[in-house]
Nucleic acid binder design. Structure first.
Lengths: 146, 146
DNA sequence: TATTGTTATACTCTATAACTATA
DNA sequence: TATAGTTATAGAGTATAACAATA
Protein backbone atom coordinates (compact mmCIF):
# COMPACT_ATOMS: atom_id res chain seq x y z
CA UNK A 1 0.00 0.00 0.00
CA UNK A 2 2.83 2.41 0.79
CA UNK A 3 4.15 4.56 -2.02
CA UNK A 4 7.85 4.56 -2.73
CA UNK A 5 9.02 7.99 -1.69
CA UNK A 6 10.07 10.30 -4.49
CA UNK A 7 8.55 8.27 -7.24
CA UNK A 8 5.75 10.73 -8.10
CA UNK A 9 6.35 14.43 -7.59
CA UNK A 10 3.62 16.48 -5.98
CA UNK A 11 1.15 17.57 -8.69
CA UNK A 12 1.13 21.25 -9.57
CA UNK A 13 -2.16 23.18 -9.67
CA UNK A 14 -1.88 23.15 -13.47
CA UNK A 15 -1.84 19.38 -13.57
CA UNK A 16 -5.02 19.27 -11.50
CA UNK A 17 -6.87 21.78 -13.67
CA UNK A 18 -7.68 19.59 -16.64
CA UNK A 19 -8.88 16.49 -14.79
CA UNK A 20 -10.98 18.78 -12.59
CA UNK A 21 -12.55 20.32 -15.70
CA UNK A 22 -13.43 16.85 -16.98
CA UNK A 23 -15.23 16.05 -13.74
CA UNK A 24 -17.06 19.38 -13.80
CA UNK A 25 -18.14 18.82 -17.37
CA UNK A 26 -19.47 15.35 -16.66
CA UNK A 27 -21.48 16.58 -13.69
CA UNK A 28 -22.88 19.53 -15.61
CA UNK A 29 -23.92 17.41 -18.61
CA UNK A 30 -25.65 14.92 -16.34
CA UNK A 31 -27.61 17.66 -14.58
CA UNK A 32 -28.62 19.24 -17.89
CA UNK A 33 -29.82 15.92 -19.29
CA UNK A 34 -31.82 15.00 -16.20
CA UNK A 35 -33.41 18.45 -15.93
CA UNK A 36 -34.31 18.33 -19.61
CA UNK A 37 -36.21 15.10 -19.09
CA UNK A 38 -38.42 17.07 -16.70
CA UNK A 39 -38.74 20.00 -19.12
CA UNK A 40 -36.50 22.17 -17.00
CA UNK A 41 -33.51 24.10 -18.29
CA UNK A 42 -30.31 23.67 -16.32
CA UNK A 43 -30.73 27.25 -15.11
CA UNK A 44 -34.18 26.47 -13.74
CA UNK A 45 -32.92 23.28 -12.14
CA UNK A 46 -30.14 25.20 -10.42
CA UNK A 47 -32.62 27.74 -9.11
CA UNK A 48 -34.98 25.05 -7.88
CA UNK A 49 -32.14 23.23 -6.16
CA UNK A 50 -30.88 26.46 -4.60
CA UNK A 51 -34.25 27.05 -2.94
CA UNK A 52 -33.64 24.59 -0.11
CA UNK A 53 -35.42 27.18 1.99
CA UNK A 54 -37.48 30.28 1.18
CA UNK A 55 -35.48 33.40 0.36
CA UNK A 56 -36.07 36.85 -1.12
CA UNK A 57 -35.63 37.24 -4.87
CA UNK A 58 -32.51 39.33 -4.33
CA UNK A 59 -30.90 36.58 -2.24
CA UNK A 60 -31.73 34.03 -4.90
CA UNK A 61 -30.18 36.15 -7.64
CA UNK A 62 -27.07 36.55 -5.54
CA UNK A 63 -26.96 32.82 -4.96
CA UNK A 64 -27.26 32.16 -8.69
CA UNK A 65 -24.68 34.84 -9.55
CA UNK A 66 -27.05 36.50 -11.99
CA UNK A 67 -29.00 39.71 -12.41
CA UNK A 68 -32.24 40.21 -10.47
CA UNK A 69 -34.24 40.53 -13.69
CA UNK A 70 -32.98 37.12 -14.70
CA UNK A 71 -34.20 35.58 -11.47
CA UNK A 72 -37.58 37.19 -12.07
CA UNK A 73 -37.90 35.32 -15.36
CA UNK A 74 -36.67 32.00 -14.02
CA UNK A 75 -38.99 32.06 -11.03
CA UNK A 76 -41.87 33.36 -13.12
CA UNK A 77 -41.73 30.37 -15.47
CA UNK A 78 -41.47 27.92 -12.60
CA UNK A 79 -44.27 29.66 -10.74
CA UNK A 80 -46.46 29.21 -13.81
CA UNK A 81 -45.75 25.48 -13.53
CA UNK A 82 -46.63 25.38 -9.85
CA UNK A 83 -43.09 24.58 -8.72
CA UNK A 84 -42.46 27.75 -6.71
CA UNK A 85 -44.41 30.57 -5.10
CA UNK A 86 -43.69 34.25 -4.63
CA UNK A 87 -45.20 35.81 -1.54
CA UNK A 88 -44.82 39.38 -0.25
CA UNK A 89 -42.54 39.70 2.73
CA UNK A 90 -44.31 40.87 5.89
CA UNK A 91 -41.19 42.70 7.08
CA UNK A 92 -40.24 44.63 3.99
CA UNK A 93 -43.12 45.42 1.68
CA UNK A 94 -40.78 45.86 -1.29
CA UNK A 95 -39.53 42.30 -0.97
CA UNK A 96 -40.95 39.02 -2.22
CA UNK A 97 -39.98 35.63 -0.88
CA UNK A 98 -39.54 32.77 -3.30
CA UNK A 99 -40.24 29.26 -2.00
CA UNK A 100 -40.68 25.82 -3.47
CA UNK A 101 -44.09 24.19 -3.46
CA UNK A 102 -44.22 20.54 -2.36
CA UNK A 103 -44.19 19.67 -6.08
CA UNK A 104 -41.10 21.79 -6.55
CA UNK A 105 -39.31 20.16 -3.66
CA UNK A 106 -40.25 16.71 -4.92
CA UNK A 107 -38.94 17.55 -8.37
CA UNK A 108 -35.69 18.91 -6.97
CA UNK A 109 -35.15 15.67 -5.09
CA UNK A 110 -36.06 13.59 -8.10
CA UNK A 111 -33.54 15.44 -10.25
CA UNK A 112 -30.85 14.85 -7.68
CA UNK A 113 -31.72 11.16 -7.48
CA UNK A 114 -31.86 10.70 -11.24
CA UNK A 115 -28.33 11.93 -11.91
CA UNK A 116 -27.29 8.40 -12.68
CA UNK A 117 -24.01 9.17 -14.37
CA UNK A 118 -22.74 10.96 -11.28
CA UNK A 119 -24.32 8.42 -8.93
CA UNK A 120 -22.82 5.57 -10.92
CA UNK A 121 -19.38 7.14 -10.84
CA UNK A 122 -19.48 7.68 -7.09
CA UNK A 123 -20.74 4.16 -6.49
CA UNK A 124 -17.95 2.73 -8.60
CA UNK A 125 -15.35 4.25 -6.31
CA UNK A 126 -13.75 1.96 -3.77
CA UNK A 127 -14.39 2.60 -0.06
CA UNK A 128 -10.83 3.88 0.23
CA UNK A 129 -11.35 6.31 -2.63
CA UNK A 130 -14.60 7.58 -1.17
CA UNK A 131 -13.04 8.06 2.23
CA UNK A 132 -10.18 10.02 0.71
CA UNK A 133 -12.42 12.05 -1.59
CA UNK A 134 -14.92 13.45 0.90
CA UNK A 135 -12.59 15.72 2.88
CA UNK A 136 -10.90 16.87 -0.32
CA UNK A 137 -14.22 17.91 -1.85
CA UNK A 138 -15.17 19.80 1.29
CA UNK A 139 -11.81 21.49 1.31
CA UNK A 140 -11.99 22.47 -2.36
CA UNK A 141 -15.59 23.59 -2.02
CA UNK A 142 -14.70 25.85 0.90
CA UNK A 143 -11.86 27.35 -1.11
CA UNK A 144 -13.98 27.85 -4.23
CA UNK A 145 -17.08 29.33 -2.60
CA UNK A 146 -15.80 32.27 -0.60
CA UNK B 1 -1.17 10.43 10.78
CA UNK B 2 -3.07 7.15 11.04
CA UNK B 3 -6.82 7.28 11.44
CA UNK B 4 -8.39 5.41 14.32
CA UNK B 5 -10.26 2.55 12.70
CA UNK B 6 -14.03 2.77 12.82
CA UNK B 7 -14.15 6.42 13.72
CA UNK B 8 -15.52 7.65 10.42
CA UNK B 9 -17.65 5.31 8.34
CA UNK B 10 -17.04 5.14 4.61
CA UNK B 11 -18.99 7.96 2.91
CA UNK B 12 -21.95 6.94 0.79
CA UNK B 13 -22.31 8.27 -2.77
CA UNK B 14 -25.11 10.51 -1.48
CA UNK B 15 -22.80 12.19 1.00
CA UNK B 16 -20.34 12.94 -1.79
CA UNK B 17 -22.98 14.42 -4.10
CA UNK B 18 -23.47 17.76 -2.45
CA UNK B 19 -19.83 18.70 -1.86
CA UNK B 20 -19.12 17.65 -5.43
CA UNK B 21 -21.89 19.97 -6.65
CA UNK B 22 -20.33 22.85 -4.72
CA UNK B 23 -16.99 22.28 -6.41
CA UNK B 24 -18.64 22.04 -9.82
CA UNK B 25 -20.52 25.27 -9.22
CA UNK B 26 -17.41 27.13 -8.16
CA UNK B 27 -15.52 26.00 -11.22
CA UNK B 28 -18.38 26.85 -13.55
CA UNK B 29 -18.86 30.34 -12.10
CA UNK B 30 -15.15 31.06 -12.41
CA UNK B 31 -15.09 29.99 -16.06
CA UNK B 32 -18.18 32.07 -16.84
CA UNK B 33 -16.70 35.16 -15.19
CA UNK B 34 -13.34 34.85 -16.93
CA UNK B 35 -14.92 34.18 -20.34
CA UNK B 36 -17.19 37.17 -19.85
CA UNK B 37 -14.20 39.42 -19.32
CA UNK B 38 -13.15 38.45 -22.85
CA UNK B 39 -16.66 38.96 -24.22
CA UNK B 40 -17.19 35.23 -24.61
CA UNK B 41 -20.19 33.34 -23.31
CA UNK B 42 -19.42 30.23 -21.30
CA UNK B 43 -20.76 28.19 -24.23
CA UNK B 44 -18.32 29.85 -26.61
CA UNK B 45 -15.47 29.37 -24.16
CA UNK B 46 -16.25 25.67 -23.85
CA UNK B 47 -16.30 25.33 -27.64
CA UNK B 48 -13.02 27.19 -27.98
CA UNK B 49 -11.41 25.06 -25.30
CA UNK B 50 -12.78 21.88 -26.88
CA UNK B 51 -11.02 22.71 -30.16
CA UNK B 52 -7.59 21.53 -29.01
CA UNK B 53 -7.30 20.20 -32.54
CA UNK B 54 -9.30 20.72 -35.73
CA UNK B 55 -12.45 18.67 -36.03
CA UNK B 56 -15.58 18.52 -38.21
CA UNK B 57 -18.59 20.48 -37.06
CA UNK B 58 -20.43 17.24 -36.28
CA UNK B 59 -17.63 16.05 -34.00
CA UNK B 60 -17.62 19.38 -32.21
CA UNK B 61 -21.38 19.25 -31.62
CA UNK B 62 -21.02 15.73 -30.26
CA UNK B 63 -18.22 16.91 -27.98
CA UNK B 64 -20.37 19.78 -26.70
CA UNK B 65 -23.43 17.55 -26.28
CA UNK B 66 -25.56 19.91 -28.33
CA UNK B 67 -27.38 20.03 -31.63
CA UNK B 68 -25.43 20.62 -34.84
CA UNK B 69 -27.38 23.80 -35.54
CA UNK B 70 -26.24 25.13 -32.19
CA UNK B 71 -22.60 24.49 -33.05
CA UNK B 72 -23.13 26.34 -36.33
CA UNK B 73 -24.16 29.46 -34.42
CA UNK B 74 -21.40 29.23 -31.83
CA UNK B 75 -18.66 28.76 -34.41
CA UNK B 76 -20.18 31.40 -36.68
CA UNK B 77 -19.93 34.07 -34.01
CA UNK B 78 -16.39 33.11 -33.09
CA UNK B 79 -15.40 32.95 -36.76
CA UNK B 80 -16.66 36.52 -37.14
CA UNK B 81 -14.25 37.47 -34.36
CA UNK B 82 -11.33 35.70 -35.99
CA UNK B 83 -11.01 33.08 -33.27
CA UNK B 84 -11.82 30.02 -35.40
CA UNK B 85 -11.95 29.04 -39.06
CA UNK B 86 -14.22 26.72 -41.00
CA UNK B 87 -12.61 25.02 -43.98
CA UNK B 88 -14.12 22.44 -46.34
CA UNK B 89 -12.87 18.92 -45.77
CA UNK B 90 -10.89 17.51 -48.70
CA UNK B 91 -12.08 13.98 -47.94
CA UNK B 92 -15.81 14.53 -47.58
CA UNK B 93 -17.15 17.48 -49.50
CA UNK B 94 -20.18 17.72 -47.23
CA UNK B 95 -18.01 18.28 -44.18
CA UNK B 96 -16.37 21.39 -42.76
CA UNK B 97 -13.51 21.35 -40.32
CA UNK B 98 -13.48 23.86 -37.46
CA UNK B 99 -10.11 24.95 -36.15
CA UNK B 100 -8.77 27.65 -33.85
CA UNK B 101 -6.75 30.50 -35.26
CA UNK B 102 -3.57 31.43 -33.37
CA UNK B 103 -5.64 34.18 -31.71
CA UNK B 104 -8.25 31.61 -30.70
CA UNK B 105 -5.64 29.30 -29.21
CA UNK B 106 -4.03 32.18 -27.36
CA UNK B 107 -7.39 33.23 -25.94
CA UNK B 108 -8.21 29.68 -24.86
CA UNK B 109 -4.93 29.51 -22.96
CA UNK B 110 -5.47 32.91 -21.42
CA UNK B 111 -8.90 31.92 -20.18
CA UNK B 112 -7.45 28.80 -18.59
CA UNK B 113 -4.69 30.81 -16.94
CA UNK B 114 -7.04 33.51 -15.67
CA UNK B 115 -9.29 31.19 -13.70
CA UNK B 116 -7.88 32.57 -10.51
CA UNK B 117 -10.51 31.24 -8.15
CA UNK B 118 -9.81 27.67 -9.25
CA UNK B 119 -6.08 28.28 -9.44
CA UNK B 120 -6.11 29.83 -6.00
CA UNK B 121 -8.03 26.93 -4.53
CA UNK B 122 -5.66 24.36 -6.01
CA UNK B 123 -2.63 26.31 -4.85
CA UNK B 124 -4.02 26.50 -1.34
CA UNK B 125 -4.10 22.72 -1.10
CA UNK B 126 -1.28 21.08 0.78
CA UNK B 127 1.15 18.86 -1.14
CA UNK B 128 -0.47 15.84 0.50
CA UNK B 129 -3.91 16.96 -0.59
CA UNK B 130 -2.77 17.55 -4.15
CA UNK B 131 -1.09 14.18 -4.29
CA UNK B 132 -4.24 12.47 -3.06
CA UNK B 133 -6.54 14.48 -5.31
CA UNK B 134 -4.94 13.88 -8.70
CA UNK B 135 -5.64 10.15 -9.05
CA UNK B 136 -9.14 10.63 -7.65
CA UNK B 137 -9.95 13.26 -10.26
CA UNK B 138 -8.64 11.06 -13.03
CA UNK B 139 -10.68 8.17 -11.73
CA UNK B 140 -13.87 10.22 -11.43
CA UNK B 141 -13.31 11.80 -14.82
CA UNK B 142 -12.91 8.41 -16.46
CA UNK B 143 -16.11 7.23 -14.81
CA UNK B 144 -18.05 10.35 -15.76
CA UNK B 145 -16.96 10.67 -19.38
CA UNK B 146 -17.70 7.26 -20.89
C1' DT C 1 -31.35 6.67 -48.75
C1' DA C 2 -28.49 8.51 -45.23
C1' DT C 3 -25.40 12.12 -43.66
C1' DT C 4 -23.27 17.05 -43.13
C1' DG C 5 -24.08 21.42 -42.50
C1' DT C 6 -27.02 25.45 -42.73
C1' DT C 7 -31.21 28.28 -42.28
C1' DA C 8 -35.77 29.47 -40.31
C1' DT C 9 -38.31 29.52 -36.25
C1' DA C 10 -39.50 29.62 -31.47
C1' DC C 11 -38.44 29.71 -26.81
C1' DT C 12 -35.26 30.38 -22.98
C1' DC C 13 -31.25 32.68 -20.81
C1' DT C 14 -29.06 36.84 -19.65
C1' DA C 15 -27.86 41.68 -18.83
C1' DT C 16 -28.92 46.76 -19.18
C1' DA C 17 -31.97 50.47 -18.64
C1' DA C 18 -36.11 52.43 -17.07
C1' DC C 19 -39.92 52.19 -13.93
C1' DT C 20 -42.85 51.56 -9.45
C1' DA C 21 -43.23 50.99 -4.73
C1' DT C 22 -41.16 51.09 -0.47
C1' DA C 23 -37.39 52.12 2.99
C1' DT D 1 -31.68 58.81 -1.79
C1' DA D 2 -31.22 54.01 -1.94
C1' DT D 3 -33.18 49.39 -2.41
C1' DA D 4 -36.44 45.31 -4.13
C1' DG D 5 -38.70 43.79 -7.76
C1' DT D 6 -40.60 44.08 -12.37
C1' DT D 7 -40.92 45.18 -17.30
C1' DA D 8 -39.03 46.25 -21.88
C1' DT D 9 -35.59 45.30 -24.87
C1' DA D 10 -31.80 43.11 -27.26
C1' DG D 11 -28.42 39.59 -28.09
C1' DA D 12 -27.03 34.90 -27.34
C1' DG D 13 -27.99 29.86 -26.40
C1' DT D 14 -30.71 25.93 -27.70
C1' DA D 15 -33.60 22.47 -30.13
C1' DT D 16 -36.84 21.19 -34.00
C1' DA D 17 -37.97 21.09 -38.69
C1' DA D 18 -36.96 21.85 -43.38
C1' DC D 19 -33.56 22.29 -46.81
C1' DA D 20 -29.28 21.71 -50.15
C1' DA D 21 -25.27 19.22 -51.28
C1' DT D 22 -22.88 15.10 -51.06
C1' DA D 23 -22.05 10.17 -49.90
Amino acid sequence: MAQEPGRRPVPTPDELLEPLAVVVRGHYDDLTAVAGRHSLSSAQARALIALTEPMPMSALAQHLVCDASNATGLIGRMEARGLVTRTPSPEDRRSKVAARTPEGTALAHRIRDEMRVVHGALEALTPEERTALLPLLHRLGALLAP
